[in-house]
Design a protein around this nucleic acid. Structure first.
Length: 278
DNA sequence: CTCAGTGTTCAGTG
DNA sequence: TCACTGAACACTGA
């Protein structure tokens, strides 16, 4: 699920459901992994009675700004997400004839009941997500260790180019490095390099200024477009590598007929089109 | 039954 | 310090 656009959709849902509301009651799953050893009783004591001022995000980190600290900070891992009852329209791919919305949802980890009868829940099937408490989320790890957020704070072309060309790793790994660009995940990194026409194995320090600027422009455009589509991938442009990258078929091709290769870079499956990425 | 996986972290190596 | 690799985490779904 979650790269920057999916997390931003979660932020929007939380903002719509919870901002301005008081938290009346909280239910926590008995899951010491996702809750990072903060017990359910402390969660309830911390959250109940507080008012939610806003839902904020940096990279893949998401938190509820309350009227008093500490604030709950969420990371969705591979499979986490926010849910709200009857919020189908705000969620992913909830077409007319999908499964009836189950409530409470499968794999629910926390349920936050609000004073207007609404509810915000987080689910996480594979338990790689985390829910933490932070007094000052923006100035404490993990958020303080993140790099720029491509939606909220893209560096200038000049600055971006300097940043990229100072790094020795391959450009795919660099894009995945959260201390460089916060919120970029595996498919966005591949999409950026495909559209920019850059071989993912290139050393960042070997890129020309023009190539670095091209990467910046594609990163900005792809993130903006995916967020604008509310992370509904059926609305992503047909020409995107995204639609063709899954399932490593030997005969996979892009929409333009370019053969797609799958290789492992930085420990992650990388899909790319060698004929147009140099 | 096997295996990949939209993420992160840590230990070990060079 | 930097860069890289592999394993671990936990579990689903193909």
């Amino acid at each position: 699920m979650p790269e920057l656009p999916e997390v931003e959709r979660g932020r929007g849902l939380a903002q719509a459901v919870a901002a301005g509301r008081r938290i009346e009651r909280v239910w926590c799953a008995d899951d010491p992994i996702v809750f990072d050893s903060v017990g359910p009783q402390r969660w309830r004591r911390t959250l109940e009675g507080k008012r939610v001022e806003a839902a904020r995000r940096w990279g893949k980190q998401l938190w509820l700004a309350l009227d008093a600290p500490p604030h709950p900070l969420f990371h969705f891992g591979m499979t986490g997400g926010f849910k709200a009852p009857g919020a189908a329209a705000l969620q992913l791919k909830s077409g007319p004839r999908e499964d009836p919305p189950a409530w409470p949802p499968r794999f629910v980890k926390i349920r936050i009941h609000l004073d207007d009868g609404g509810e915000l829940a987080m689910t996480d099937g594979r338990r790689l997500g985390r829910i933490l408490l932070r007094d000052d989320p923006e100035r404490e790890p993990p958020v303080s260790k993140l790099g720029f957020d491509p939606l909220l704070a893209m560096p200038s072309p000049k600055r971006f180019s300097e940043l990229v060309r100072a790094r020795g790793s391959n450009v795919k790994s660099l894009l995945l490095d959260q201390s460089f660009a916060a919120g970029v995940g595996n498919w966005i990194a591949d999409e950026v390099l495909y559209q920019a026409g850059i071989d993912p194995r290139r050393r960042a320090s070997s890129l020309t200024d023009a190539e670095a600027r091209r990467i910046r422009a594609r990163l900005a455009a792809i993130v903006k477009r995916a967020v604008g589509a509310n992370a509904d991938d059926s609305r992503y442009p047909r020409t995107w590598l995204f639609h063709r990258r899954w399932g490593k078929r030997g005969d996979a091709k892009t929409a333009r007929g370019e053969p797609i290769e799958h290789v492992t870079i930085g420990g992650r499956t990388t899909a790319w089109a060698p004929s147009v990425q140099r």
